[in-house]
Computed example of a mutant assay.
Amino acid sequence: MFTSHDGLCGIGELAEAAGVTVKTVRFYSERGLLPEASRSAGGHRRYGPGALERLRLIRSLRAFDLPLPEVRRVLDEDEGCAPGGVLEDAVAGQLRELGSRLRELRWREAALRLVQECPPGERADRLLLVGALTAPPSTAPLARFWRAWLPARMPARSTAAFLDVAVPQPPDDPRPAQVLAFARLNALTLAPCPDVGGRPQPEAHRTAGARGAAVLYAGLAEAYELAAVHLRRDREPHGGEALDSFVDAYARAYGIRDTPDFRRLLARQLAADPRIDMYWELVAEVITPPGARAEPTPGAAHDWLHAALTVRPTASAA
């Protein structure tokens, strides 16, 4: 490749052969990525036959935005000075980073479309609403909201199980409507906790206590699954297994029997408890794919079961 008698080339010749500037060659040389073979009598860098291939490899790696330390490790692996898998790990890391950046850009695009497509009179308020979100948004405010809502000493495993259901994950490629729904969720959870009659939490939390609440939420999860079957079929609230499971969750948490009097009392208690229906409506908007029917949320199942309890307060499958 090189025409000199000793098979070496100068920095200018190497730069020309690689299609880069002398400044680029000098930059990689000074950082130890492109070792020189020797120096001329005048102190100029001289490079061996392998320098061109190495420089091209460096340029290829940098074209994928690999940082210099990663490039060095890949070069060391190529020379047998590092364990295998360095290049694969570096590529995998870049793919993860690229995926995160693409997700961020999709959220920003959907947010901009949301502002662009809304009526002019609403743009300022909507811009403030979506501008409060990161891209993609954090679920931390939602989790903090529920941790304040749940009993303080509820077992960690039970709390984590509930949060998995109650805190929706932002979609990777959102529609503008999903961005708006998540922005409203964010604003809702950052506002003061819902308060009805001076009681910011359901009566069930105080009656059951922290340990009883774990039993309660485990039982409610089963009841909600049963109710979801009826919701998907558009059935009106009625008595049966779902309602019995719902009432049994409260009875076991309170340590009392399921009786007609208990059901009447429970119906009145649930009617007076704080409502966060808006939260669950927004969750349904966030998690529902385009064109799909919204899956029943725990909030929708709870409302269906409470309505069934109100319609048939003393009915039991037992």
Rank of each mutant, 00 (worst) to 15 (best):
Y47W: 07
L190H: 14
A82L: 13
W107A: 00
V130F: 06
P170W: 10
Q269W: 10
A249N: 12
C9E: 10
L220D: 00
P67A: 10
C81E: 13
D65Y: 00
R199S: 12
A183G: 01
L95K: 00
L75T: 01
G121V: 01
V167T: 12
W304N: 00
T159I: 11
A208W: 09
G239L: 07
T134K: 04
D6K: 05
S4E: 09
A214R: 13
A213C: 15
D195G: 08
P176E: 10
T310I: 11
R59Q: 14
E53D: 15
R157D: 11
P151K: 09
E16N: 08
S4T: 14
L105Y: 06
A124N: 03
D172Q: 05
I256F: 06
L142A: 07
I11C: 04
R62I: 12
G19N: 08
L270G: 00
E88R: 10
D172V: 05
R275V: 09
E16Q: 07
P35C: 03
R62E: 14
I11E: 06
P137I: 12
D261F: 10
V91C: 04
G198M: 07
L216G: 03
R199I: 05
Y28E: 01
R312H: 13
A214G: 03
P289Y: 00
R39N: 08
V165R: 13
P296R: 07
A135M: 05
E97W: 05
A161S: 08
P290S: 14
E13D: 15
P83D: 00
W304M: 02
E122N: 14
E53W: 08
H238A: 15
E122R: 14
V247N: 01
G50A: 12
G198K: 08
P176I: 11
A251I: 04
V229H: 14
L127S: 06
A156R: 12
A166R: 02
A228T: 02
V20Y: 13
L87K: 02
L150H: 07
I276L: 05
S245R: 15
T297F: 02
R62W: 07
F145M: 05
R175A: 15
T288Q: 05
T189S: 07
L226S: 07
A183W: 02
H44D: 11
L68F: 00
R199H: 09
R108L: 13
A284D: 07
V247P: 11
F162K: 10
E295W: 01
Q169S: 11
R113T: 10
P192E: 04
P67E: 13
V311P: 00
G209I: 13
A301L: 03
R232D: 02
A140T: 15
Q169D: 06
G299R: 04
W304F: 09
A318L: 08
L188C: 00
H205F: 15
D303H: 14
L128Y: 01
E77N: 06
R56A: 02
L127R: 09
A284C: 08
S245M: 05
R56V: 01
A37W: 06
